[in-house]
């Protein structure tokens, strides 16, 4: 799990498109040393974005359920992973897929082309590549999808012989950070996720309430697929990003079936750079049964699932 040279950079907003009811895609352009640093960003790495000076939308555009939250002053940066990184001749475009949930993401929606933001990154450790594996299983829960999209692209580019299968789940159809396309030719659900299909990766959709695709948790969908796939466990690797309960279940499945599994964890963090010590993730130590806290920002956010102690 490697790292690239990090720093504090000024990024220019090149686009900020609404792609769902509360879901947006922000494109940031980096030049100079920032272009180099973010050009080397690994899938699963993240950045801390300063949104404190970004204006709120006008009151009429603030959803009713976020009006109280919109009164909150923000001071801390916010951590975001990236769904795509494109290196151009003299700049790098790094894209953030985000959902509007509180005072910072609400401000983020008002960014438009020409604005600039202060970004610290790339931070943390990304996913390790699936060397020696035959099939990579990308398991995305809700807003956990973005770094897996980036991972899909990089695996396709650097390991074209490795198969990828994506599993994307959310509570409801509306909370899936994708546009769904109906296609009778597609597997089972009849749903296609173009975001994965463009990398020639087939995907399974699940929703807890059955409003789209498989009814149930994305991990149940994975289990069903594993039961039917007829592949050897040692040839598989699971990459997970999503809510902690989903990652805990993924770790359990991986453990039972002896499949390698990497998960991207999330914790409240003040800085993202190892200063504040708030983003503690409980990890096993060798043998003794004692646990230690590692820092999500520096030691993660991607961990080998065998290392983690999940909350019961």
């Amino acid at each position: 799990m490697g790292t690239s040279k990090k720093g504090q950079f000024c990024a220019a907003v090149s686009a900020n498109r609404q792609i769902g009811r509360r879901c947006y895609r922000l494109s940031l352009a980096f030049e100079g040393t920032g272009a180099k640093a973010f050009g080397e960003l690994l899938p699963g790495q993240f950045a801390e974005v300063d949104l404190s000076e970004v204006a709120l939308p006008v009151m009429e555009k603030i959803p009713q359920d976020l009006r109280d939250a919109s009164k909150r002053e923000i001071i801390l940066r916010r951590p975001f992973s990236f769904c795509d990184v494109t290196v151009q001749r003299n700049k790098t475009i790094a894209e953030i897929l985000y959902c509007v949930v509180g005072p910072a993401s609400l401000r983020m929606t008002t960014l438009s082309a020409g604005d600039s933001v202060s970004v610290i990154g790339p931070l943390g450790n990304g996913f390790s590549m699936p060397k020696g594996k035959k099939t990579a299983l990308l398991l995305a829960g809700g807003m956990g999808a973005p770094p897996l999209l980036h991972l899909a692209k990089v695996i396709r580019r650097d390991y074209p012989k490795i198969e990828c299968v994506a599993f994307a789940g959310a509570k409801t159809k509306e909370e899936l950070p994708f546009k769904l396309r109906l296609d009778k030719a597609s597997i089972k659900s009849g749903l296609v996720l173009d975001e994965f299909a463009k990398y020639k990766i087939k995907s399974f959709v699940s929703t807890d309430d059955g409003s789209a695709g498989y009814t149930g948790f994305v991990t149940d969908c994975l289990v069903q697929w594993l039961d039917e796939c007829g592949l050897k466990e040692k040839d598989l690797i699971i990459y997970g990003c999503g809510p902690e309960a989903m990652l805990a279940r993924a770790a359990e499945i991986a453990d039972e079936r002896k499949i390698d599994c990497q998960v991207s964890m999330e914790q409240m963090m003040a800085c993202g750079i190892g200063l504040c010590q708030s983003c503690a993730v409980e990890c096993k130590t060798d043998g003794s049964g004692e646990t230690i806290y590692k820092m999500c920002c520096k030691d993660g956010p991607v961990f080998d699932s065998r290392e983690l102690v999940f909350k019961k």
Binding site: R72, E73, I74, I75, L76, Q267, M268, M269, A270, C276, Q277, S278, C279, A280, V281, T291, I292, Y293
Partner: peptide, 17 residues
Amino acid sequence: KGNAVPRIVETDSGMLN
């Protein structure tokens, strides 16, 4: 080891740790 998480929360113009 320190305390269990969450260990921080942002407040208006500040934070708790």
